[in-house]
Write a protein that binds this DNA or RNA. Structure first.
Lengths: 188, 188, 188, 188
DNA sequence: CATGAATGAGATTTCATTCAT
DNA sequence: AATGAATGAAATCTCATTCAT
């Protein structure tokens, strides 16, 4: 199982990288094969559902990653505003490290595939719900009122996703910084 | 001259519809031909630069549309918070009217093409800059302090774009409503 | 008639240049329009028979050009071998001047179109017949026996055409020089 | 492996036939698909470099064919003039058998593609060099002086290529016969 | 007599998927 | 379980030609 899982994971990771950089459609399976170093036939073998199935795994993986990092960030924060700030900073740092190319893989999957694949639409929904839920949970843990925490979490996740697109167009991190500052004001 | 302009415009409008619904890559030229009713050859004739050139026109058109509506909304608003609320509501209404399919055409163009077309990246940047600038301008006109207005405008545009993706995944307008409420609190 | 003839001539000359450099198929009408500066509609107006008709005019023009130069060369030559040498040198010089790009326009027209257009096949044949006939005539004028002159002329024209292709592949004029030397030996 | 090689070879052979009959540009990939019976997708699979890559293989194959036949011809010849005569006759016979349609595939490739593809220009050059070299070698083996043999070989190859074009325009073999006679005189 | 916008047929190429081993 | 060769549908783009003025 070890080697098989390796190949499978490499495929998913290469796909995620591609979708973060260029979206779903522009990430061809041959790109994934090249980037992952996996044998061509392995893609269909591990993902008989085709590119949509790969995208679903990408969404799942990204969900897991984000939740893990969120928990770690929360553990190191001592206020709601501090937590929020740290969240945005982490994403801004990751984005800058990638030379302003690695956005969220779920946004293009949702935009490009929701009309045709309900499964991917629902996977995207689950991703956003998990992310918003986690943020709301941690905000509430730091004293923000329940319903309010959910609305702020929605604003935060929305603003981060939108700012990532603006930042991609500008090749800077400025929009995320502006978002961070206003979120801090809103919460503090 | 009349007929020529008609065809060209119909192509741009059909393309914008497609890109709002499915993004850039999933909007094939044949889709545009079908939806616009334009002859196939006319697409290349009017847009010798191919789909990238069409996308550039879509971004330009969307910029114009948004600025016009923003001015109209501002004219009818009597406070910064009221203006902001009306902006979000207008977009939410347009999105709901389209059965939760018509997002922003610029987001997918920026995500899918920025890595390969600097021209489209810059067009996207100009779109966001114009939108943010107009929002900031109207906020300032209603008494919000200059630098603050720019940050709030960035937050607002980011949050609207991000919320539109969340709303697409949910087939509701809930995220936009949450964003509207928090923006109102922040400004009011 | 002046201006019309100008446009028509410019089209033919631009076409000849293109066909000498890239052959028939790779010389697009839009290339001809660009290179000639003629209005697009003028091409069809002056050549309702399309590209084949243009090619026919190119072949005709090239025939005329070659015969004129041949007569001039013959007038300056005082022996059969001298005439032959001067012919090859003139063509080699013209080819080198064009940076080894301007071959014979008739060869590609004959190869690419003979199978489909009998008219172009016959125009090519007439071109070769005229060229060979003129060479034979001048050789005979310098004392070469009639039937022999025709065979030598055929060899010369064949060798020049073939050597031009070799020279194109090498970006030199060496093959034409070798041909010139052997033709001189053969005649002298 | 057997089936793969078959398809690949059939594609090359069908392409060579087309290019000999109509040149490079007029031999469409769809023609090649039809003539070879190969599946459309196999063309791109075996030749990811497109038509240029196919042309390169055609040039290589033609080089090999010609060298093989030349060696066989040389083995059966007992004089330089006899060898030369047999070479021209073999080509004339092949051309007549094809109803005066099957010329040299390299000439159109060189003319149509040299300006844009250095690789094809160099492949053409290699073809001519190999052919001229082999002819020179066999002439030298029959007693012709070294440098002279090379010049005669260049003349012979040039004249054969040129005469093939003339013969195509006339639908006869006359020009090749004239070339053969004069080459015999020159060597004998 | 002349023009340039407009058109659709056809070309190449990309690509996800299928299949035999 | 795993592979890579093979395939054809569909995409974009090129281009000669048509047409209205």
């Amino acid at each position: 199982m070890g080697r098989r899982t390796d190949t499978r994971d490499r495929i998913i990771q290469a796909s995620m990288r591609g979708m973060r950089e260029r979206g779903f459609g522009a990430t061809a399976i041959s790109d994934i094969v090249t980037a992952s170093g996996a044998p061509r036939g392995s893609v269909t073998f591990h993902f008989p559902g085709g590119k949509d199935e790969i995208a679903r795994e990408v969404v799942t993986l990204r969900t897991t990653q984000l939740l893990e990092r969120l928990d770690a960030t929360a553990a190191e924060s001592d206020s709601a505003a501090g937590f929020m700030t740290a969240c945005v900073d982490a994403i801004a740092a990751e984005f800058a490290d990638s030379q302003f190319t690695a956005g969220c893989p779920v946004v293009p999957v949702c935009i490009e595939r929701s009309a045709q694949s309900d499964q991917l639409r629902l996977a995207s929904m689950a991703f956003f719900k998990a992310w918003r839920g986690a943020v709301a949970h941690h905000l509430a843990a730091h004293g923000v009122d329940g319903p309010r925490a959910e609305r702020v979490a929605t604003l935060a996740v929305s603003a981060i996703e939108g700012a990532l697109v603006i930042c991609r167009s500008e090749r800077t991190v400025d929009a995320l910084v502006a978002v961070r500052e206003e979120l801090r004001l809103l919460i503090g």
